[in-house]
């Protein structure tokens, strides 16, 4: 088993209101097959052994789908691997002697809870504003009643693949949540089932987003950071839907 030695600079902050700062730790004998989070587990074991409080960070499924984990690693959201969440980043991507800076996601609306853990609940607020199709349990028609062209279903899926990790906001210099919001909106707006609430949904979700996050300047950092590589095009579709919605006569919405 190959092992490497690393120097970590980890952001430590005891609570939301406390001052934070970087603390340097030596991580020795890190197996290359470990994931980045297992490396942090190992550091934590050592910290506990020496009586220092372990580093708080969030993770759950550790297979890149739940979206719980995520930190800035050397200035990149989820680290250097493209299309990879932090839990799926393995230490063999680093070299012996590397210096790694680990910092929490940052945005005004992602306040730090402790160390590397942040509160991402505004993303849920955006979904609450309209990220659903209003169908009560039991009232659905047969699933094959409405054919959905395969291309449409695939495009909707590309948007629906968003795992809600917040890396897009973290990577954006403006702390904009456009990619997350657009993925959520377009997943539903592209499908025939989502048409009834399309305009209402678009306006409500965009306007909720804007209460919490910055403005998109089309830099594209979000897509680069996204573990699911959600394309920027969804942002464009959302912009178009939003302006259309403002201009449209809703009573004629059925005609588009």
């Amino acid at each position: 088993m190959n092992t490497i030695n690393l120097t970590l600079e980890v952001w430590r902050q005891s609570g939301p209101a406390a001052d934070g700062g970087f603390v340097t730790y030596e991580a020795n004998d890190v197996a290359e097959d470990m994931s980045f989070l297992e490396m942090l587990d190992l550091v934590n074991e050592q910290l506990i052994a020496t009586g220092e409080e372990p580093i708080e960070f969030e993770s759950d499924c550790r297979e890149g789908i739940c979206g719980t984990c995520g930190v800035m690693i050397n200035g990149k959201a989820h680290g250097p691997e493209k299309a990879t969440a932090t839990c799926q980043l393995h230490m063999r991507k680093f070299d012996d002697g590397d210096h790694i800076v680990v910092e929490p996601w940052r945005a005004t609306s992602f306040p730090i809870i402790k160390d590397l853990a942040v509160d991402r609940s505004p993303l849920d607020d955006i979904v609450t504003a309209g990220g659903f199709i209003g169908v009560n349990t039991g009232s659905a028609p047969d699933a094959n009643l409405i054919p959905v062209p395969k291309e449409t279903a695939d495009a909707a899926f590309d948007a629906a693949a968003c795992i809600g990790c917040g890396a897009c906001v973290a990577a954006c210099p403006n702390s904009a949540a456009q990619l997350f919001t657009s993925a959520k909106i377009q997943h539903l707006n592209l499908l025939p089932q989502g048409q009834a609430e399309r305009w209402k949904r678009t306006e409500a979700m965009v306007e909720t987003m804007e209460q919490f996050f910055g403005s998109c300047t089309n830099h594209g950092e979000c897509t680069e950071a996204c573990p699911k590589e959600i394309p920027l095009d969804f942002i464009a579709y959302t912009n178009r839907d939003y302006v259309k919605s403002k201009i449209k006569n809703r009573k004629l919405a059925g005609q588009s």
Partner: peptide, 22 residues
Amino acid sequence: VDIIDQAVAQGVPFAREYGGLL
């Protein structure tokens, strides 16, 4: 049987054939 109907109505993007059916 009802679960699939419910999920599709909610917008769950199940795999589809070219004819648009599940």
